[in-house]
């Protein structure tokens, strides 16, 4: 419990730093001083929404990875290795192409529905496969994702929408403003539901036989998990784009330290996810000031380094 409080304090500290890092100067002095208007405006319109978006997206994506890993019973699965994120991008493209007037919420729901279909297809393929080596599972997901991405990009290329597709594929919080991140609160609500259902996900993670023995409706829990993961992923992609590796490394790090009993590990996963995204975004804002490196890139570097560490550790539990 004390550890959790410390972790939460760390996330709050990073969030505070995030409020004061950026191109225009927002300092406590400027906020309190006489010429306050501009600083206050920047804070309320840009910095607070951006910081909230980072926290909500980071926690949501990390928890989504955790849920997918429990449902697929494989530590290498997350929304970008299960066809989820690629399907969501496909959905975004379809709405943009066929019904460009659709409001943000509608776009997100279509993307969510596509993500749901793509992830269900992934789990369906896994059920059909006789020998499941742990490494085959993410490979199947990556291939499925590549096929979906190929069709997305073919259509986008024809329709001259490649730029939009790139924006959904690369996480970037620099465009987050008040009025353009609120979908992520839906993701936060879904993450809270995941916490309520944490025991069910853990039981499902023991495997279908154990779950059935314990009287759990396995299929229903898988469906609930898929809906949560798909909608959270869609909300994140619709607001700021894909954040790679997050759903993979955060649950694995927490699994090593605290195990997989989701009732206990989920708050840790959410906090570490939020903290890591905040740190990567702040670093991206500072490195080539006044320009920015998008979080898709910073997280890609940090994430792949941590992932390599997880793979190469002796006595790996990842399987």
């Amino acid at each position: 419990m004390r550890g959790l409080v410390l972790a939460a304090a760390g996330v709050i500290a990073l969030a505070a730093v995030s409020l004061f890092v950026g191109v225009s100067d927002v300092t406590i002095g400027a906020l309190l001083g006489s010429a306050t208007d501009e600083a206050t405006q920047v804070l309320l319109v840009s910095r607070v929404p951006r910081t909230l978006a980072l926290v909500l997206a980071g926690a949501g994506m990390a928890v989504s990875g955790l849920i997918l890993q429990m449902l697929a019973r494989n530590k290498f699965v997350e929304p970008t290795t299960a066809g989820t994120a690629e399907s969501a991008v496909f959905g975004m493209l379809m709405v943009t192409l066929l019904a460009p007037e659709t409001p943000m919420l509608g776009r997100m729901l279509v993307a969510g529905a596509c993500a749901l279909a793509g992830t269900a297809l992934f789990l369906g393929i896994l059920r059909q496969m006789p020998l499941r080596s742990p490494l085959i599972v993410p490979l199947v997901g990556l291939m499925l994702g590549a096929v979906i991405t190929a069709s997305t990009e073919f259509i986008a290329y024809r329709a001259d929408l490649m730029q939009s597709v790139r924006a959904w594929e690369t996480g970037d919080f620099s465009g987050v403003l008040r009025g353009r991140y609120e979908l992520l609160w839906i993701g936060a609500a879904l993450t809270a539901i995941a916490y309520v259902a944490a025991d069910r996900f853990t039981v499902a993670g023991l495997g279908e036989d154990f779950a059935t023995n314990l009287g759990l409706n396995h299929r229903r829990v898988v469906s609930l998990g898929l809906v949560i993961v798909s909608l959270v992923t869609a909300a994140v992609i619709a607001t700021c784009g894909m954040i790679p590796f997050l759903g993979l490394i955060v649950p694995n790090l927490i699994s090593l330290m605290r195990g997989d009993n989701m009732r206990q590990s989920l708050p840790w996963v959410a906090l570490l996810g939020a903290g890591l995204v905040l740190a990567c975004d702040i670093a991206g804002r500072l490195m080539i000031r006044p320009y920015e490196i998008p979080i898709g890139t910073t997280m890609g570097i940090v994430g792949s380094a941590i992932f390599l560490y997880l793979l190469l550790r002796k006595n790996t539990h990842a399987a």
């Binding site: 530590k75 853990t202 023991l206 495997g207 036989d209 195990g259 997989d260 009993n261």
Partner: peptide, 8 residues
């Protein structure tokens, strides 16, 4: 019984 979840 194959167990991938890390439980105590």
């Amino acid at each position: 019984n194959q167990m991938t979840a890390r439980l105590t």
